[in-house]
Amino acid sequence: MPANTKFELKMGAATREAFGKALVELGRKNKDVVVCDADLSKSTMVHWFAKEFPERFFSCGIAEADMVAIGAGLASGGKIPFVASFSVFVMNKGFEQLRVTAAYPPDVNLKVVGTHSGISIGEDGPSQMSIEDLALATALPGFTVISPCDEVSMAAFVHLAAEHYGPVFLRAGRPKVPVVYNGDQKFTIGKAIGLVEGKDVTLLAHGLMVAESIRAAEILEGEGVSARVVDMPTIKPLDTEAIRKAAVETGAIVVSEEHLVDGGLGVKVAQAVGQTHPCVMEFVGIENTYAESATPHELLEKYGLTAASIAEAARRALKRKG
């Protein structure tokens, strides 16, 4: 069970930090794990791996397309390569390489890690912000796409990604985020996790919007609304059974994410809802725009990625549900 089901969320590490630490542990466990970096090792936190395993760390320079295809070649030689950069660079500059070298040849065991996802990187502004990475990653046939919400789940998914044979995209964030799970939680690729029980509406989310959804459930509880909160760390393959259950049992779903609404988890959930049990839905995400420079907190407020926005979306859904 989650550590803080009664809405007590303590601040934890950034998911990029959890990734960097887990990668070192993984490197100790598995000698085939290698890492490629494009001059952002201190930001993606793969510098810890580089320090401990210099012979298994390849500095590619600022050359993401080259890095991705080198990773595919390393995988073809039997290694388990993790290629890491800011999500916006590895997915956008490396996309065509991912497509040709990792997606359509079958069984390429490449792990792609995009840190600094979403708008919560703050001051650096929209050229560094990845708000379409999930649309791109899920458009790659055969890819598994994972967006963990806290340090505990990220650490677990680093190991699960390595154990899973095939291409994986793992999404990490820059800012510190609340700890949602305690260490006992078991994670499985492709499985959603119920965090808060509820019967009136389901709040689905991934990444840092999971903690916001928990806070939204608390707001709604104060209004007499029983909101279910479900973490969907795996964007692909989607846990359609958890979605169907949410639709059947609560009759209203709000999907929240730090991503463009277009091409994000929400539209995929809507597809699953349409195919299983149609119900009222609302979407909280970035609406057809790029963000700007400001503090992460200011940006999340301005672009509506908060517990208050989620609660408001839930009220809209409930009104329509009738």
């Binding site: 390849f58 397309a65 030689g77 390489q97």
Partner: peptide
């Protein structure tokens, strides 16, 4: 050894293979 067709990618793929062989 590789799926190719989009020009410019083969040398990088080959480098990954060569690095894996060197590590092995």
């Amino acid at each position: 050894e590789a799926s190719t067709g989009s020009l410019g990618q083969g040398l990088s793929i080959g480098l990954g293979m060569a690095l894996a062989a060197r590590l092995n």
